[in-house]
Design a protein around this nucleic acid. Structure first.
Lengths: 349, 349
DNA sequence: CTGAAAGCGCTAACAG
DNA sequence: CTGTTAGCGCTTTCAG
């Protein structure tokens, strides 16, 4: 019995009137139906249904002080790991009756600030966010000042609740893997570290492990963007006296474009140079060569972050949770068998 | 001068008090500052800043009847074209001061209905959605009954405002391309058509063009999911007397998994069998073989849909807008040179 | 240019 | 189990 006609919006008061009860009782009927006598409940629901009535959440939010809506602030959805993160978080939120307001920042702290301000204005009950760097982030201060619950996703921090992988350990694992393949000269590639503390931590982990294993010091090459390789930077890197035999990229999206860039320059991957990524985005497996990477399940990170946030909202103690990572052995990183990398024709014509 | 201390939330009334003006004037100061004397404005803003005051949107939304928030309902963000669509829509929304509440349905009409109900309850000003099928969709009826503005994204319809590509024409273009490569036996692969009218339209376009060109009738093979190929279905298809030499998949994600599935079965792409997709997701270009597909820019679709929706909200007349498509010639579809497809060793060991 | 008053739709005390 | 009362924070007439 859905009424098709564009009916004027009905209010709870009118339902109360028509069902011959007080507004409070109608409110109870919808929020804590067990407190209402069955016969009364049926009467109210019948009237409500007839009018297609549903409580206006603005009214209830204003009065109760809770919107039952969470905010999600991520760098970009172009990176599929963040898209997965959304799905994990939204699924968890929905399971508890929460909705999600979402926005992207393109790794820009100014946009982070604007985004969080917008979410605060909407009186959201909590926020999940990935920031460029949680240390003295004005954004987190603002959230705290307002008393809005929040959980970091992807960022690691001991000062704030967060859900992330152990970036340091994961990067170390990758270096060990590359070393096992015989690589002794490994370079790290990322965007500007000021835009991503994850990249910075991964670099530290890589350097430390390289030192431990007695490899050459890991050089850091910086691309203008975190998601797109710059051919000039690659060219210059490979023109150096002792070029690396393996490249460890701070994320899979970047690794993918690095591989394309290398091919354009005439280097075959992995025969001339090995490439590894970080994130475990699903396309890595279907690429050719398949990507050697660290799997850090975005869905899990999002789901966990949301779970931690909901705990906070229910006034349970703040806590963080680490999400496990796995090394994915693909074909983009091969044993350092042959000679030094040099421009050659690539395999595919 | 941000105040770090967890200050009790300040209301407009308190600001009014402290600035020695009426609440109405503070409201004007924030909403139509030109109506307020400069000196008064300064005084108000000074007080507001000192307290870190920002108007509570719940109050204003309740009173004004507008939340300045849009809903976005998409099948899944795993498909990068939908992720792009979000970015396009959110960018456009933000440019007009709107926020976006987002949810995914996994192609399930029941979830579509629940999602839209949730958004209606939140009193959103409008909704952008992709539904399984807009014809007699109860979801669109509900929106209309409530007087909530909406625009379809990806779905084509003459009964509803929408932003989409011309799926029929685009699919026809792909068939022409495959025919030009010498293929005369082409199969169409998709998930259940009841979950996606786009797939249905693409199939019609493909069949029609095949007929026009005198090719063999296009057979339709149905996978359980729109995003994941089933090896059994592929095996059975290729076991038939006259197997196809080219497969046209209803989307790129599916095409990708079809290629993987074919490889697992021992068929090389494109040497044994050609594969084409639809969507133009960015990973298609970096895959190997690169994907032959129809580019239908998700970002544009999202941006346009949002633009149309905002027009509606400003009471301009409803309208739809088609987004152009382009054929991307990749390496996954090759000339139908050699013999019939048969299990062989693939190129890569 | 500014103020007073009313109320958007709902829920939380508190009574009964 | 149900009703009464008050008001969440804001905007919007309508007067001045």
């Amino acid at each position: 019995m859905d009424n098709k006609r564009r009916s004027a919006p009905v209010s709870l008061i009118q339902i109360a009137h028509e069902a011959e009860v007080s507004p409070a009782t109608v409110s109870r009927a919808f929020n804590r139906p067990t407190l209402v006598h069955t016969r009364t409940l049926e009467r109210i629901m019948a009237v409500a249904e007839r009018h297609g009535f549903r409580p206006n959440r603005l009214g209830s939010s204003l009065r109760s002080g809770s919107t039952r809506t969470l905010g999600l602030v991520l760098p970009t959805l172009s990176n599929p790991v963040f898209a997965d993160c959304f799905e994990g978080a939204e699924m968890r939120a929905r399971a508890s009756g929460f909705s999600v307001m979402m926005t992207v920042t393109h790794y820009d702290p100014a946009q982070e600030a604007a985004a969080v301000q917008r979410l605060i204005d909407h009186q959201l009950d909590g926020v999940i966010l990935t920031v460029a760097n949680p240390r003295r982030s004005p954004v987190l201060k603002a959230l705290k000042a307002r008393g809005v619950s929040y959980v970091l996703a992807y960022n690691e921090s001991d000062a704030h609740p967060c859900s992330a992988v152990d970036n340091y350990a994961a990067a170390s694992d990758m270096i060990s893997h590359l070393a096992r393949l015989g690589h002794r000269r490994i370079a790290f590639i990322s965007g500007p570290l000021s835009m991503s503390d994850r990249a910075a931590t991964r670099l530290s982990g890589a350097r430390s492990r390289a030192r431990t294993l007695g490899l050459a010091a890991v050089k850091h090459h910086i691309m203008p963007s975190h998601t797109q390789a710059d051919t000039q930077v690659l060219k210059q890197m490979l023109g150096n006296p002792n070029p690396p035999s393996a490249l460890f990229c701070s994320n899979d999206l970047l690794a993918t474009t690095v591989i394309v860039g290398l091919r354009d320059l005439g280097y075959g991957v992995p025969q001339d140079i090995s490439v590894a990524g970080f994130d475990g985005m699903r396309y890595g497996a279907v690429m050719s060569p398949s990507l050697t990477t660290i799997e850090a399940a975005g869905y899990e990170i999002g789901k966990t972050a949301c779970h931690l946030l909901l705990e906070q909202i229910e006034h349970q103690p703040l806590r963080s949770q680490q999400v496990p990572h796995t090394l994915i052995t693909g074909a983009s990183a091969a044993p350092h068998g042959t000679v030094l990398p040099a421009p050659l024709t690539t395999c595919k014509s």
